[in-house]
């Protein structure tokens, strides 16, 4: 008996080794490179360089701006969609939500190509409205990731709570703001975490739309093209810190099973 339990535990060893090699080790390497120069000597130059360069600081601010606006736009579009679908008595509800989520499974570069063609017809030169076009592109790319978790939490909502609110004399609006909205917050928060961080780092969207590289992720890309591993590592480390803070902040409220990268429907 003892032996059998021992063997089951052992099955996890390859994965633990794998996590050490490809998850933990790379993080240490990033930290090491971020605080050394090309010759491997300790330096703070990468860090001070980042915070004294107006270009990198501007990029950081711009990325935050893009991410915040994109998240808000996604939320404003996704919440009503999820709410309408979850509350409706349509028989084909599950099919409609599938249609909303389906774009997740089409390669995002191909979808951005399609968006670019259409926007070019409408606007002419996309570089005239860089901020707006980036937000449109990101929203187009990430909207399904916001709809799904909100829909999942709204579907789990206990109907008797709404009936109780109604019986106790709450108006439709009061019920929404005091019952539905607070109870759907876990879905909203996991939706936000699915959109906000990619919107800060997914530089391909704006690169494809109008050849711009003015976002945090593309800083890594440009250091990478210049073989500057140390500068790139510092950017990666800063991004990692932002991600850490963001994740710790959202984890308290996030609904664990409300859909991760489209996994909930599979």
């Amino acid at each position: 008996m003892c032996k059998s339990i021992f063997s089951r535990k052992q099955l996890g060893i390859p994965y633990i080794l794998f996590l050490f090699l490809f998850v933990i080790a790379p993080l240490f390497v990033i930290v090491f490179f971020a605080f050394t120069n090309g010759e491997g000597q300790f330096t703070m130059k990468n860090l001070t360089g980042f915070f004294t360069d107006s270009n990198t600081l501007g990029t950081l601010a711009y990325s935050f701006g893009i991410a915040i606006v994109t998240t808000c736009v996604c939320l404003l579009l996704a919440y009503p969609v999820a709410y309408i679908l979850a509350r409706s008595h349509m028989k084909m509800k599950s099919v409609v939500i599938m249609i909303f989520v389906m774009p997740m499974w089409i390669n995002f570069t191909l979808r951005i190509t399609a968006l670019k063609e259409i926007l070019t017809v409408i606007e002419g030169n996309l570089a005239f409205y860089p901020f707006m076009n980036t937000v449109i592109g990101m929203t187009y790319d990430f909207l399904p990731f916001m709809i799904l978790p909100i829909y999942t939490t709204l579907m789990k909502l206990d109907n008797s709570l709404l009936e109780a609110a109604n019986d106790l004399g709450a108006s439709g609006r009061q019920t929404f703001f005091h019952v539905t909205l607070p109870l759907s917050m876990p879905g909203v928060v996991s939706g936000i975490s699915m959109v906000f961080l990619p919107a800060m780092t997914n530089y391909v969207v704006l690169d494809m739309l109008y050849n711009s590289t003015y976002i945090m992720g593309s800083l890594i890309g440009s250091y990478f093209s210049a073989y500057n591993w140390n500068g790139g590592s510092m950017i990666a480390l800063i991004l990692l810190l932002i991600i850490c803070i963001f994740t710790l902040a959202t984890n308290r409220v996030a609904d664990e099973d409300a859909g991760n990268r489209g996994g909930a429907l599979l």
Partner: peptide
């Protein structure tokens, strides 16, 4: 412990994951 480490690539930006594995 495994759960926590497992969570790192899930929440991490793909740019950072890719770049760090490339460096390593």
């Amino acid at each position: 412990a495994i759960n926590t480490v497992n969570q790192v690539p899930v929440v991490n930006a793909d740019v950072v994951t890719g770049f760090s594995i490339c460096i390593l």
